[in-house]
Simulated assay, not measured.
Amino acid sequence: MRTEKPTSMSVWTRPSRQRRDQPALSREQIVAEALALLDAEGLEALSMRKLGTRLNAGATSLYTHVSNKDEIIELVVDRVYGEIDVPVPASASHEDWRAAALGFGENVREVLLRHIWIASVLGELGMANLGPNMMRLTEDMLALFETRGFDLESCDIAVKTIWGYVIGIATTEAAYLTTLARSGRDEQAWMETVRPAVETAVRPYPRVRAMYELEPRRDVQDARQGYFQVGLNCILDGLEARLPG
C-alpha cells in the first residue's frame, strides 16, 4: 500500500528543495520584490504571475523556492519582523527597563503601520513563529524581560501579553489606515468629514456621547499614539506588579 507524504503547512516546516544548478532567482530577490509589491499595491495585487513579471522571470522560476503564494507571504512577514528592534536597557533599573520596554512596543507598532497590508494576514499565519527573524525577535524580547528580573516562565507570559496588545492595536489601526488610503484623503480631513455622522450616532447613548464630548479635537495621529502609550504603560504596570518584592 502506497503512503502519501503529508502536505507541508508552512514554508518553515517543509524540507528545503535541493537543486544542482544555480537558480536564476534567489529567495532574497523574491522576498524583496514581493514586499515592494505588497507595500505599493496591497495584498490583493500579489500573485505568482505578477511577481514573476516584476522579476522578469516566469512564475515557474518562483517554485524553485516556494510552493505557493502563501509561502511567499510567510517569508515576507518574517522579513518585516526583521525590521523590529528590541532596545537593550542601559541597566536593570525600573527607569531604564521601562524606557526599553516602551521603545520596543512603539517599534513594533511603527513597523506594522509601515506595512499596513499585514493586518490582513497576521491571524492566518499559524507557523510565523518559526521564521528566523521571529525567532531572533522572541529571544531578544525574553532577554529584555529577564533583565528586569522576570523568570523565564514570567518572561514568556509578559512577551505574549505585550505582543498580543501591540499586534491587536496595530492591526486595527492598519485596517483603518487602509480604508483611509482608499478614500484619497488625509486623516484629519477624513475625521472632520465623518464627525457629523459620529455625533448623530452617539446621540442616543449618554455615556458614549459624554466620552466623545470629552475628547479634545486634537490631531488624530497624536491621539492614536497617545492611546497606544497609555495602554502599553498600563500593561507594563501590571507586569511589574507581579515581580517578587
Score class of each variant (00 low, 15 high):
L112Y: 15
E28W: 01
F145A: 06
A170P: 03
E240G: 07
A210K: 08
A45H: 14
V202I: 13
G238V: 00
R20H: 12
R185K: 14
Y205C: 01
E215D: 11
R218N: 05
S8R: 11
G103K: 08
L177M: 14
M141S: 12
K50F: 00
A210T: 07
E124Y: 09
I73T: 08
N68K: 08
P206W: 04
Y165W: 03
M9F: 04
I73S: 06
E199C: 03
T178C: 02
E173Q: 14
E139K: 11
D151F: 07
A143R: 14
E153N: 05
V159R: 11
D21Q: 11
L152R: 15
A34F: 07
D237Y: 07
N133E: 13
K160W: 03
A24W: 02
R109G: 05
E187T: 04
R114T: 12
E83H: 10
Q188E: 14
G238M: 06
F228N: 09
N107K: 01
G226Q: 09
E187G: 02
F104P: 01
P206C: 06
V208D: 01
D85W: 07
E240W: 05
I84R: 12
M191G: 04
N133A: 08
G149V: 05
V80P: 01
T60Q: 14
T147C: 13
S10V: 07
D39E: 14
L37C: 10
H94L: 11
G184H: 05
D39Q: 13
N133G: 00
E71F: 08
V76R: 09
Y165P: 00
Q221K: 14
L37N: 02
L46A: 09
T172Y: 01
W190H: 13
W163V: 07
G123I: 01
L144G: 10
A223L: 13
V66Q: 08
V31Y: 01
Q29E: 13
V31S: 04
A90L: 13
H94M: 05
T138W: 09
R224C: 01
R27K: 15
M141H: 00
V230E: 10
C234D: 09
T13I: 13
T64L: 05
L144I: 11
Y165N: 03
V166F: 03
E146I: 00
K50M: 03
T60H: 13
E187Y: 11
R185Q: 14
R20L: 12
R17W: 00
I30H: 07
S8I: 03
R203A: 15
A119Q: 03
A197T: 12
V77A: 14
V111E: 06
D156M: 10
